[in-house]
């Protein structure tokens, strides 16, 4: 999916947990998430904690859209 979108010339960032899967598939811009069932918010934490994490990582993904890269990159996240 990601590859087709990129092939069409539309910049795309993939948020996912399984980085090896994303790198194997060939996504170019990857932002890590925390798990498979809940990529952007651990239900074991408070809603505020989940929100902060989600807001941060989606922000990293948005910024990644503007990043000029030569090859595959996995972005660092703070929370």
């Amino acid at each position: 999916m990601v590859k087709e979108i990129e092939r069409a010339g539309i910049p795309v960032v993939l948020l996912c947990n399984l980085i090896p899967v994303a790198t194997t598939v060939g996504a170019n811009k990857i932002v890590p998430t925390i798990s498979i069932p809940y990529p952007l918010g651990d239900p074991g934490t408070s809603w505020e904690t989940q929100w902060k994490l989600r807001y941060h990582r989606v922000g990293v993904a948005l910024d990644a859209l503007t990043d000029d890269i030569e090859e595959q990159k996995v972005y660092k996240v703070k929370i």
Partner: peptide
Amino acid sequence: RMAKEIIIKLEEDKVDAVIMTST
């Protein structure tokens, strides 16, 4: 195939970029 069908919709609405999540 699904991506191609979706891309048509994106292009119709002049979408510039995509954020995608996977599980």
